[in-house]
């Protein structure tokens, strides 16, 4: 992942928990695939399984790779199925003013970039992109900047990311590959560790 250029889906709800992102009834699988169709299932579909018109995912462009969501996104359960569902749906970047810790780690481990912006910037972006659904946002990971230019808006927002995570994302390295390579040091540590 280096650059993403996409329209955005706006979900103007705070404290979206992972039970909403993927309800527990879908956690019975033993593999990682196919969760995208259940993403936000209880909000997205009615009891008969038809799309609910008032839900954002049924109003915005379905090929959007960016999700803009309210403060404290991904709180609650540690289920990585939430990140799998988001990635499987095709979302590559989530923009919010704060992410829950476990979710943030899960997202990064699945190539989904959490971008934190200030509450004020988030408010402005939500308002604008709710109305201007075809305007694209550019996420430049290398330079850690979010940009958008349109008639009534110019956005240029720098965002933070842990340098190691950034390097891993840019180079496609996973934590597990790195850790397996530390085998010698880990064994040495374990041999003298007292607990």
């Amino acid at each position: 992942m280096k650059k993403i250029n996409s329209t955005a889906i706006v979900l103007n709800i705070e404290n979206i928990d992972t039970d909403q992102i993927i309800p527990a009834k879908f956690l019975k699988s033993t593999n990682r695939d196919g969760f995208g169709k259940h993403l936000f299932s209880n909000w997205r579909y009615d009891d008969e399984g038809n799309p609910k018109e008032d839900f954002a995912f049924n109003q915005f462009e379905s090929e959007s790779e960016i999700l803009i969501a309210g403060n404290n996104f991904g709180c609650g359960s540690s289920r990585e199925h939430a990140a799998w569902a988001i990635a499987d749906y095709g979302i590559k970047v989530i923009i919010s003013s704060q992410f829950a810790d476990i979710f943030k780690g899960n997202a990064l481990n699945n190539g989904v970039l959490p971008v934190e912006v200030s509450q004020d910037s988030l408010r402005v972006m939500m308002k604008y992109f709710s109305k201007h659904k075809s305007v694209k946002i550019q996420i430049d990971l290398e330079n850690q900047v979010l940009k958008a230019v349109d008639q009534d808006i110019v956005l240029h927002i720098n965002f933070d990311i842990d340098p190691l995570k950034k390097q891993f994302l840019m180079e496609g390295i996973s934590d597990i590959e790195y850790l397996i390579k530390q085998e010698k040091e880990i064994s040495k540590f374990e041999s003298t560790h007292k607990l």
Binding site: R32, S78, R79, H81, G105, N106, N109, N110, I176, I180
Partner: peptide, 12 residues
């Protein structure tokens, strides 16, 4: 932790 981390702990 998430499942990717479960795998990391299992492996290392």
């Amino acid at each position: 932790i998430g499942t990717s981390q479960v795998e990391q702990v299992m492996a290392s």
